[in-house]
Structures are given as C-alpha cells and as structure tokens.
C-alpha cells in the first residue's frame, strides 16, 4: 500500500524556509535601518525595473546564454575525459594533483588571467564557466568509475560484457549517482562563476548589473540582482532534479516503500 505524501509536506513545507527568511529580513532591515538593507517594497520595485522584459533581454540573456553554453561544454568534456582517465590507472594517479590544484583555485583569481589570455568577450566567460564545471564534474566521474561495485563487475566479467556495452550499460549507470551529484554541484558552481566572470570589463549581465549597482551604492538594485540570481539558481536546480528523475526511477533509487 503506497503512502501518498501529504499535500502539506509536498507544497507547504518547501515554502516555509523562504517565508521565514523573508520575514527575518524584514525584521532585520527594520531594526537596522541601514542603507545596505533596503525595505522589501524598495527591493521589489527595483526588481521590477531591473528585470523588466527589456532588462531581461539586456542583462539576463547574455549571462544565461554564457551559462547555457559553458555548462554543457564543461559537463560533456569532463565525462569524456573522466572515462578515459578512469580506465588508465597511471593516468588517474598522475592527474590527481593537477585536478586538485585547479579545483582549489578560486574562480575569482582565474578570471583576470583568462581575460588577458582570451580577451574580454562572451567566449572567454563561457570558457571560464566551462572550466569551473569541468573540474568539478571530472573529479566525480573519475571517482564514480573507480569505485564501481566489485560484485557487479564480477558478473559483468563472467558474462564477458566488454567494450561500449560495458561502458554504457554497466559502468556509467553504475557511477550514475556520483556523476549526477557532480553535475549538480557543477551547476551551482556554474551559476556562481557566471556572476564572477562579469567582475571585470563587463557592461551587460546579471553579475555586471549587480556589481555596478553595488559600487554606485544603488542597494535596492544590488539586492534585486542577488534575488534574481537566487531565483535562477533555484530554478536550474529544480530543472536538474526533474531531469535526473528518469535515471533515478529506472535504477530503483526513488523507492520510498518497497514492493515486497
């Protein structure tokens, strides 16, 4: 007998945290009466202005298009290279320190280097996003493929399942959970780096608008930018959850109650 999650848990509970946070902000802003924390109505009006249809085309689209190109590029190249590295033990051991190094480097530090190397255009930003996503996902792909269930591997070996069939039907799905976790972390990182890549030399973009508002003390607009970024992040995460459901369902990982 399946227990259906109650309506309250499914729809009310997720809204509780944002409501609490908003309430907390209102109280805090009222208490502080600080320029840095404008009232909610002022933030809301700045939000409407900044993210009007014109504003969205002007500032949201350039940033999002960079993310939409950079993220899949980083993801795909990480999966491909990860498959290669995981197969060759020597390569895996040799690459570990390099990967660790790049993972540890904060993207903020990398941006100026990339601009010097590749110029200030959107391509550079896409590259910066791609490389951040790349290392995050790579680590998880290599790890996932190196820690496959030995019992599963034993069966696959016995029944002589090799080559591409082994890769696509046994190994990659076996590492699926880990790879998806890496891809999700990469997505959040991608959003962050999308903003950070607009730190220098950028007129139009979500990060550009937010940062320029901050340096001209236009705090309602700054908050409008931050809230918008948060909405993007939540939205993309939600889309990711939807996208990974088919895999989780097939692999039996969505079970809350068992059949037998």
């Amino acid at each position: 007998m399946r227990r259906h999650t109650s309506w309250a848990i499914r729809f009310v509970a997720p809204l509780l945290m944002p409501v609490v946070l908003l309430g907390g902000y209102v109280l805090f802003a009222h208490w502080q009466s600080n320029l840095y924390f404008p009232s909610l109505p002022r933030i809301y009006s700045a939000f409407k202005t900044t993210w009007s249809p014109h504003g969205l085309r002007l500032n949201a689209w350039p940033s999002l298009s960079n993310l939409l190109l950079g993220y899949p590029a980083g993801l795909l190249s990480a999966v491909l290279l990860g498959i290669l590295v995981a197969r060759l033990r020597a390569l895996r051991v040799a690459s570990e320190p390099i990967i660790a190094f790049f993972l540890a480097l904060p993207s903020v530090a990398i941006v100026p280097i990339f601009i010097v190397l590749f110029g200030p255009g959107p391509g550079t930003k896409q590259l910066i996003i791609a490389q951040a996503v790349f290392f995050q996902v790579l680590v998880n792909v290599i790890d996932g493929l190196s820690t496959l269930d030995p019992t599963l591997a034993q069966s696959a070996d016995l029944f002589k399942i090799h080559g591409f069939r082994r890769l696509f039907l046994v190994d990659l799905p076996g590492a699926g959970s880990q790879i998806l976790a890496g891809a999700r972390a990469g997505l959040s990182l991608g959003v962050l780096v999308m903003i950070v890549s607009e730190l220098f030399n950028t007129r139009f973009g979500i990060g550009a608008v937010t940062l320029s508002a901050q340096s001209s003390f236009d705090f309602p607009t700054m908050w409008a930018g931050m809230v918008f970024t948060a909405i993007i992040g939540i939205g993309l995460n939600g889309l990711f959850s939807l996208a990974e459901r088919p895999y989780l369902r097939r692999a039996g990982l969505l079970q809350t109650t068992t059949g037998a």
Partner: peptide, 13 residues
C-alpha cells in the same frame, strides 16, 4: 554462474 548477492549482480537500471 549465479552468485549469492543477487541485488548486486543484476543491473537495477
């Protein structure tokens, strides 16, 4: 061959 741990020798997906 058939192994003891069926949950880890059949592919769940």
């Amino acid at each position: 061959a058939v192994f003891q741990d069926y949950s880890r020798s059949l592919l769940p997906w």
